[in-house]
C-alpha cells in the first residue's frame, strides 16, 4: 500500500511538472483563458475573408456557380483558421460553430447552382440567414467578423 501511495505521489509530481512545462513553453497558447489572442486572430482572419468576399463582386447568373465555389472556399478557410485559434468561452465557441454550420449549406447551394437550380439556391440561402452570423460575432466581441463585406463594383 505504501509503494502504491508513493507511486501515486510521484505521478502527481510528474504531472504538475509537466503541466508547468507545457504552460511555460506554450507561448502562443490561446486556450489559457486570455481571450485576446482568439479575438485578434479571428478579427485578422475575418478581415482577410471579408476582403476576399468583397473582391468577388456581384456575379451574373452564369457566374453564380463559380461565385459560390469561391465563397465556400473562403468560409472554409476562415472556419479552419478560427477553429485553430481555440475558443475560450461560449461566445467564441458559438462563432466557430456558426461558421461550421454555414459550410454544408454553402455546399448544398453550390451543388444546386451546378444543376442550374437557382430557385433552390435561393431557398437554401435561408439556412445561412438563420445562422445570424453577425449577431453571433457581435456576442463574441468580434467587430470585424460582424461586418458585412461590400462587394466591389466590377
Amino acid at each position: 500500500m505504501k509503494i502504491t501511495f508513493r507511486s501515486f505521489a510521484s505521478l502527481l509530481v510528474l504531472a504538475a511538472v509537466g503541466a508547468l512545462a507545457v504552460a511555460g513553453c506554450g507561448g502562443g497558447g490561446s486556450s489559457s483563458g486570455g481571450g485576446g489572442s482568439f479575438a485578434s486572430g479571428a478579427e485578422a482572419a475575418c478581415s482577410k475573408a471579408n476582403e476576399q468576399i468583397a473582391a468577388l463582386g456581384t456575379p451574373q447568373q452564369a457566374q453564380v456557380t463559380g461565385y459560390l465555389e469561391s465563397t465556400e472556399a473562403v468560409i472554409e478557410k476562415l472556419h479552419s483558421e478560427v477553429a485553430a485559434l481555440g475558443a475560450s468561452d461560449a461566445a467564441e465557441t458559438a462563432y466557430t460553430e456558426a461558421l461550421a454550420e454555414a459550410l454544408p449549406v454553402l455546399t448544398q447551394m453550390t451543388n444546386a447552382a451546378r444543376s442550374e437550380n437557382f430557385d433552390a439556391v435561393r431557398e437554401l440561402s435561408a439556412g445561412l440567414v438563420r445562422i445570424h452570423l453577425g449577431e453571433v460575432a457581435e456576442a463574441a466581441n468580434l467587430k470585424t467578423c460582424a461586418e458585412v463585406p461590400t462587394p466591389s463594383e466590377s
Partner: peptide, 17 residues
C-alpha cells in the same frame, strides 16, 4: 444585414429567385 461575412452570398442567392 446581420449575416456578416455571409451577407453578400445571401444577397446574390436572393437575387436569383
Amino acid at each position: 444585414a446581420k449575416a456578416a461575412t455571409l451577407g453578400p452570398v445571401i444577397s446574390v442567392a436572393e437575387g436569383l429567385g
